[in-house]
Amino acid sequence: KGAALFFRAYQYLQGMWIFAKSWDPQTSDTDLGIVLRQTSDQSVPSKRSTVSACYRQIIGDLVTAAGILPELAESPMRPSKIACYGALSRAYLSIGKYDSAFYYVDKALAIKNDLIDYNDFSSTDLLKPYPLTRLNKETVFYAQLTTSYPNLHPSYGLVDTTLYASYGDNDIRKALFFKARNGFHSFKGNYTSAFNLFGGIAVDELFLIRAETNIRLGNVDRGLDDLNTLLMKRIKKEEFTSYVGLNQEDALRLIKKERRKELLMRGLRWMDIKRYNKYDGENLRLLRYINGTKYELEPNSNRYALLLPNDIILLTGMEQNPL
């Protein structure tokens, strides 16, 4: 039962990030969420629930599962208490509830806080097609994102040049994560040891969540301690300098930058952009130029909730997301 509740909540949360608007205390009781199937009876029609109802279901399922499952599973491919805590911290982070996100991520890190030291990789290791092993010691819960579409495959999905340039030469991730390809770079830093993208939960993400929530709650020094704990495993030892004495604004800006650099290609950036725009007023605009035409996704646009597949709309008659 605990495993079933975890898997359901984990997938519901992914669906909410893609197909629903960000949680808003003023409108979440009427904004459209996803379909919450509570029965296997195929004769029961599918109807969309509200955003607030969906998050109540997700959080309730994860809390119940955490009370059933063991702290650590026999394999990270199976749900566990720490996986529930990690998913709960993600869920609360995505809706701007930073005190609750801190509460659960702190419980998760009390169970497991192992980090891979990238300084231990030799120059030969860094040249491997996929240097990071599957089910490595950072893995809390193992899942994969689909790479069946060409735009996600590393042969086609090339890394943004500005993002690549943000890694310093003393940053081991620059060699570990990327491979030169046709004048650009593709991503190879998967925790899958293959071209498949990692979509699970890992300890590095937990440290970044605790760092961010500590900073947002006013505990800047504690947040920087967590960030330094992570970065000293990512930056060349002889060139690493700890971050100290930053104010809350600068520390938060740093965390956001490092979160993007550490957690790329894990299915998290879309949610991050949505919450930064919704709760922080960052006004991030996504721009694409295709065949000379400029396409722009404005902050908090309805289009951040992707359209449901048209065949689903035709079959069920449920309401489509507004454009």
Rank of each mutant, 00 (worst) to 15 (best):
G2H: 06
A3F: 05
F7S: 11
G15K: 12
M16F: 00
K21A: 13
S22H: 09
S22W: 02
W23I: 06
W23T: 09
P25W: 05
Q26Y: 06
T27G: 09
T30C: 02
T30W: 02
T30R: 13
Q38K: 13
T39I: 02
S40K: 10
P45C: 09
R48A: 00
R48M: 01
S49F: 01
S52D: 14
S52V: 14
R56E: 15
I58M: 07
I58R: 08
V63A: 05
V63R: 15
A66C: 02
G67W: 06
G67Q: 09
I68C: 01
I68D: 09
P70Y: 04
E71D: 15
P76E: 07
M77D: 13
R78C: 02
P79N: 11
I82F: 04
I82E: 12
I82S: 11
I82D: 13
A91T: 14
G96E: 12
K97H: 12
F102Y: 14
V105L: 03
D106K: 14
A108G: 11
A108I: 09
L109G: 10
N113L: 01
F121E: 08
S123G: 04
D125S: 01
K128Q: 11
P131K: 11
L132C: 02
T133P: 00
R134G: 00
L135N: 06
K137L: 03
E138G: 00
T146M: 06
S148N: 14
Y149S: 13
N151C: 05
L152K: 13
L152A: 14
H153I: 06
P154H: 05
S155N: 15
V159M: 15
T162P: 00
T162S: 04
A165Q: 14
S166N: 07
I172F: 08
I172A: 11
R173V: 10
K174D: 10
A175L: 14
K179N: 14
G183D: 11
S186I: 03
S186H: 09
S186Q: 13
N190A: 15
T192S: 04
S193Y: 04
L197H: 08
L206H: 04
R210C: 05
R216P: 04
G218M: 02
L224F: 02
D225L: 08
M232H: 08
K233H: 15
E239S: 15
E239L: 11
F240R: 11
T241P: 00
T241Q: 13
Y243S: 07
Y243E: 07
V244M: 06
G245V: 03
L246F: 02
L246Y: 01
A251F: 09
A251G: 07
L252I: 05
L254P: 06
K256Y: 11
K257F: 12
R260T: 12
L263N: 02
L264D: 00
M265S: 04
R266S: 01
L268N: 04
W270S: 09
W270M: 05
K274P: 03
Y279W: 03
E282H: 08
R285C: 08
R288P: 07
N291E: 15
N291G: 07
Y295N: 13
E296Y: 01
N302F: 09
R303F: 03
A305I: 07
L308Y: 14
L315E: 13
M318A: 03
M318N: 07
N321W: 00
P322H: 06
P322I: 07
